[in-house]
Design a protein around this nucleic acid. Structure first.
Lengths: 250, 250
DNA sequence: CCAATAGTGTCTATTAGACAGTATTTC
DNA sequence: GAAATACTGTCTAATAGACACTATTGG
């Protein structure tokens, strides 16, 4: 018997269910800004365990439909928000015997940043019999989420905050066009501090990530130039230096 | 029936094996420096699939013995190297339908940095009937590792290189005491470039991570001061600025 | 003209790069 | 003293912080 015959014979008799395997899920911290607050999308669990509790959206990978875990994450996101091209990043995987009463369980945590205005499914939507809600990060961390989802949410927010110090990531939370002041306000909201206007504008100018749209936002006072993402835009662009900001770790 | 009775009834009738679940493994890129080269610990697979191929050490979590995936990673590391307190960091999780011929599979990738001299199990050890080997990173990336392990190794090395630009991580690869020149050589080995001696010493001095051991290394020429980790040492200390170095992404 | 917001000029502080210069050892 | 390696002095370059200043709008 050749090696390859031996291998295919082995594979034929192999049944993954013969082994103890952890439960394996994908969970998502889907983040947007609405009404001047950082919010996260929560789902009310319609099944045990933790029935009735608010939780991060997520669930088991559908091995028949999803070719990869990113595909699972994209599918979940599209189901909940209708958005197909978000900023999506894997944060971390947490696995242990205690986090789920059904037994040893692993979750792959992703976070997604979306422009709230681009949502096709908004407030209070009911998807597949599950109630969903946008809750402020602050409230969500206090409100006893299901499983260890408070921990997961903290990990996602910490990642967002850290990356906001040296990347252009928050631009993913902005609409098509926006003013520099609006963008700075978004950075400040995430970091929880105020930033120097000059420094902020300098680094964006130097990055070449944005380009003037030609239009102005006319308000009660002096109008501000509107910008949009340039051709070379990448949301994980790394600026040359760090923003010098304390981050309170959640 | 109360909610909690309802939940415990649900849990009693719940069987994880009723659901399709991916195979779930932990894989480790265990890295050390020997003979002036970055090396990775490889294991020759004694079973199908990819029998006979070199692979990153790893395997299924033992749900009975391991309380968490970090525990699994630590256990695997101790089994292969005898080392209990390495630098250990989760890199990423990769999951898809193609990476393992047995079916949909997820791996949680860790990387560990160890001081080669501290190894209790060295060259050519046979652990549990498996042959192991320290191979240079360069060779390992060329030699057709099992599964997608070449990809995993690239991800681990890229992470190590990136972090070497702004953290003190390579110190985890050093013995108890060492000279600054030896440490700089370690950084240069990882980054694949030479560094400015003055800049290098300045940032270490300012960090307070190291403290003179009092001894000197006596060589053929002027002796060099020996340093050791100070009380405030943390291997993931972040320096204030980046080393200005191109990194060729593997 | 005033209030308010948009946007700029410019000085300082910090930190890395460059590289030449000094120090200490063995032979 | 020569060779080699350890270590330092110091100038430049890049980039963020601070903050006052000018510009442009509506009323």
């Amino acid at each position: 018997m050749t090696e390859s015959e031996s291998e295919s014979k082995f594979l034929k008799s192999y049944n993954p269910k013969d082994f103890d395997s952890p439960l394996c899920t994908v969970d998502m911290a889907i983040i947007a800004v609405e009404a001047g607050e950082l919010k996260v999308l929560l789902v009310q669990r319609s099944e045990h365990p933790h029935k009735g509790c608010w939780a991060l959206p997520g669930g088991f990978a559908d091995l028949k439909r999803d070719n990869s875990i990113e595909a699972t994450a994209h599918r979940k996101l599209a189901e909940k928000t209708g958005i197909k091209t978000p900023y999506l990043e894997q944060v971390e995987s947490i696995g242990n015997a205690m986090r789920d009463p059904r037994g040893w369980s692993i979750t792959l945590l992703y976070f997604a940043l979306i422009d709230f205005e681009a949502l096709s499914i908004k407030e209070g939507a009911v998807t597949g019999s599950e109630q969903t809600q946008w809750m402020s990060i602050h409230d969500a961390l206090k409100c006893e989420l299901a499983f260890d989802h408070a921990l997961l949410l903290r990990k996602a927010i910490n990642r967002l905050r850290n990356k906001t110090r040296y990347t252009a990531l928050p631009i993913s939370l902005m609409p098509e066009t926006f003013t520099l002041t609006e963008l700075q306000t978004m950075f400040e909201l995430i970091l929880g501090t105020s930033l120097q206007k000059k420094s902020f504008r300098r680094r964006l100018e130097a990055s070449g990530l944005l380009i003037g749209s030609g239009d102005m936002r006319s308000t009660a006072r002096r109008p501000a130039a509107l910008f949009k993402r340039s051709d070379s835009f990448k949301s994980d662009h790394v600026f040359p230096g760090l923003l010098d900001v304390e981050i309170e770790s959640l």
